[in-house]
Design a protein around this nucleic acid. Structure first.
Lengths: 100, 100
DNA sequence: TGGGATGTTCGATCATCGTCGAACATAGTC
DNA sequence: GACTATGTTCGACGATGATCGAACATCCCA
């Protein structure tokens, strides 16, 4: 028999979601987003011990997973946590990250 | 300032859980376990395209995360999925893996 | 128009992890 | 006791990804 008989697309989405949530820096980003109002935090305002370019890398990962939405406001790039759609696709996963 | 102000032990446990669940081979193991009765599958009986030594590696990861329990039966090492305790600590996470 | 602030891109580096085969250990079988 | 089956351990290898600094682009402001 073949290795697995689930839909490959679904597992690919799940993989992306788990990867996004599996990094401690990204979890910290998610928590800081959850503690603030939408569109109130710019990329450079996160409290994180990594370089700017590293942050950009993590943002891309979160956007790809559907967890982060970004919007340019003049000079700065504002961020918003996307809870609804992600919760619908992966119930409980984001809560798990935010609760602990 | 410090990165985060959650309990570090809790996040370490979460990290281990997400790591365990974040690998496709390990997810396949979990699904095959869920589809069978407890203690009915030996290590060598999983349908997976990896070497024996690789399997051992994955089993260790799952045991460390509290997802797998093993018991020696003569020649073979039997396996059981540990749902209750894991579901209590990380609600919804295992379901997410098994459903998709 | 020049300077500072904010982000991204790019290339390089480093660590981690999944992978394998060979060797070993142990248990069951003839 | 030999032989086979089942798993683990060990060392090596390769790919992936997190990280950084330097360079660049863009916007705001004086």
């Amino acid at each position: 028999m073949s290795t697995d008989s689930r839909t490959p697309a679904a597992d690919s989405d799940l993989q992306r979601a788990l990867d996004a949530v599996g990094d401690p820096v990204r979890r910290s980003i998610l928590r800081q987003l959850a503690d603030a109002d939408p569109w109130t935090i710019a990329c450079g305002q996160f409290d994180l011990p990594v370089a700017k370019s590293t942050l950009t890398h993590h943002f891309r990962s979160l956007v790809d997973a559907g967890l982060l939405e970004q919007r340019d406001e003049g000079n700065r790039r504002m961020n918003r946590l996307v809870r609804d759609e992600f919760d619908r696709r992966f119930p409980g996963l984001l809560d798990l990250v935010l609760d602990q």
